[in-house]
């Protein structure tokens, strides 16, 4: 099939940037979206133009490196997938596809479609851990039984891949789903309860400092999250934070 692409091009962080039109032909419906961009880049490269920069790595939906805002939605129109798992059969011959970087003050553009998501790392550094050293003498893994239900919920929260689609889809560029996933994971486990108060206060403080917006419960994040992280995690964080603040 033949497609018209409108891609955000921005030379570097200082450049103003603009949308540029490209035509691409002979796209196979079996291609992944990123493979389609590979073909475009090969073509641009052969013509002596600068290829489009975009982040990607594992290309199987787990590393969280790929991003892209495609036709108005992070990771494109399909559900429960990342951009690397989006296939061209989701589009029709003659379609126009808009491709933009994830937009947020906290995610500044590095080049073209590549953004800097280090703010996520810094939030994790503020408290997204359990303070246990590696000694080889921690107690036996089965010493504390954990309710299967809670272990499963903790797992579901822990499957967040840190891609930033929640921020990109949120009209307020809020990072609540991301932060709450980590807060929830640990809040649900006995190991994590010990530092629960400090963790939620510190992580939220950092989240605010990084310039993410406030949650207005629109639920866009949950819909667009490639891993289906639930809004219940945000509610859990709201609870955790409320109790932590009252302590």
């Amino acid at each position: 099939m033949n497609l018209k692409l409108k891609i955000w091009r921005q030379k570097d962080a200082k450049d103003a940037g603009r949308m540029v039109d490209y035509n691409i032909s002979d796209v196979s419906p079996d291609m992944s979206f990123l493979e389609m961009l590979d073909v475009l880049n090969e073509d641009l490269n052969n013509k002596g133009e600068d290829p489009v920069a975009f982040d990607h790595d594992c290309r199987e939906g787990i590393c969280g490196m790929c991003s892209l805002h495609i036709n108005g939605e992070p990771h494109g129109p399909d559900r429960g997938i990342t951009t690397c798992q989006l296939h061209m059969r989701k589009f029709k011959d003659g379609d126009t596809i808009y491709i933009e970087p994830f937009r947020a003050k906290a995610f500044p553009v590095i080049k073209d479609l590549v953004v800097n998501r280090s703010a996520f790392d810094r939030i994790q550094q503020a408290g997204g851990f359990i303070s246990v050293n590696t000694s080889g003498n921690t107690q036996d893994a089965n010493a504390i039984p954990i309710q299967k239900h809670n272990a499963d919920l903790a797992f579901d929260a822990a499957t967040c891949i840190g891609c930033g689609a929640c921020v990109a889809s949120c009209k307020n560029a809020s990072a609540m789903l991301f932060v709450s996933a980590k807060v929830s994971q640990f809040a649900l486990l006995p190991q994590g309860r010990i530092e629960a108060t400090e963790r939620v206060l510190n992580m939220v403080k950092k989240m605010d400092e990084e310039g993410f917006g406030n949650c207005t419960n629109t639920g866009a994040c949950e819909v667009e999250c490639p891993k289906g992280i639930s809004l219940e995690n945000i509610a859990r964080m709201n609870r955790e934070y409320l109790f932590a603040s009252l302590k």
């Binding site: 108005g72 560029a173 809020s174 917006g213």
Partner: peptide, 30 residues
């Protein structure tokens, strides 16, 4: 105050946005 802060969190918007795909109208226009 929240709205002003939220506006600041995305100084540059999308050229093409399709919010109706993931949210109801009311939630976006509070």
């Amino acid at each position: 105050v929240l709205t002003v802060q939220n506006r600041k969190a995305r100084p540059k918007g999308y050229v093409k946005n399709n919010p109706s795909a993931n949210t109801i109208w009311a939630s976006r226009n509070m």
